[in-house]
Simulated assay, not measured.
Amino acid sequence: MCTAFVSIDPSSPTPVVVLSVRDEYAGRDWLPPDRHWASRPALVGGRDLAAGGTWLALDPGGAGEPPRMACLLNGFGPPAAPAVRLSRGDLPLMAATDGGLDLDLLDPQRYDPFHLVRAQAGEVSVLSWSGHELAERLLPPGLHVVVNDGPEGRAANRTASQRAGRMMAARIAHFRPLLAAAARPEPTAGPADAPTGEAWGQWLPIAAGDGLDLDDPAALIQRRDFGDGRIWGSTSVSLVALGPAEARYDFNSVPGSGAWHRIGLGPRTPSTRPAEVPTA
């Protein structure tokens, strides 16, 4: 149950802040955020070693371009035909690249259902594919939550599992009010070298799970044992801030711990390859 909380305040020096939790099988190998893609040297993100894509990609901006971020959550609905199926992990890479994701070129039939959060300082949207319909929703100012059941858990195509549905609803019900009541962080307005705790303030203990047990139905940081060595749980947490001209990315590869570190973004390296949609 991946989850993304997105706070939008156009009047803030940090108009967009994102808390993203990735849930996955523990045995699926990945690499922590870095510039892993030679064809897209501007992009920073964790690399999924099973398919080569990512769950969250960030272009830190520069050279007159604003920072951009894209975050992927799996959806529910009919899967793509195996003969033409492409990895959804390509979508954040395309969406965060210069030029963005061209919806006129995208063939959603080649992807399993998804929700793709696309953000920059002036605009945040959620692109959803149900297996039948591709729809984009522009998010207004305020606090939003996206789960595998879609924005606010209200997608037309939702999980058939009552247990999973209750867990997503419990997670939203517990954590949305906490984030709404917490002082909104403005990480790009403070010192560039501010430690994670100083930059994110009251959001940090919430991002660490608010003290809930890993098997609590509302747990943001979770762990589930499905037997036969299949462990499902939260494998990383990302905190991303987007300003008009700068970005900040803090990452925790041991969710629930204090093992936060800031991802070095450095000078932006222009991509020499235009955005495209893969065809094979």
Score class of each variant (00 low, 15 high):
T188Q: 02
P78G: 09
L220R: 09
P278V: 09
P82D: 01
E133F: 07
E123P: 00
A189M: 01
P79Q: 11
G266L: 12
D228G: 08
S12C: 06
D225A: 09
P113T: 09
A119N: 08
Q202Y: 00
L138N: 10
P13W: 08
H115V: 08
G211D: 04
R248W: 09
P185C: 01
A192T: 13
G266A: 13
L43I: 04
H115C: 11
V240H: 03
A156K: 11
T196S: 15
F251L: 07
D107W: 00
V6M: 04
V147R: 12
G52Q: 09
A50C: 00
A182P: 07
A181S: 08
P41A: 07
A245P: 00
A189D: 07
P67G: 12
A119P: 08
F5E: 03
G266T: 11
L106R: 02
T54C: 10
P195M: 09
P195I: 13
H144V: 06
R273Q: 15
L86A: 08
D112R: 06
W232N: 12
G122F: 01
P244G: 10
G61E: 08
A83Y: 04
G89Y: 11
R137Q: 15
V277K: 04
P274V: 10
A182T: 07
R223D: 12
E276W: 15
P195H: 10
I8L: 14
A181Q: 12
P41M: 09
S257I: 06
N74V: 02
D215V: 03
L178A: 00
P79N: 11
E123V: 12
A57W: 03
S253K: 13
P66R: 12
F114A: 03
L106A: 00
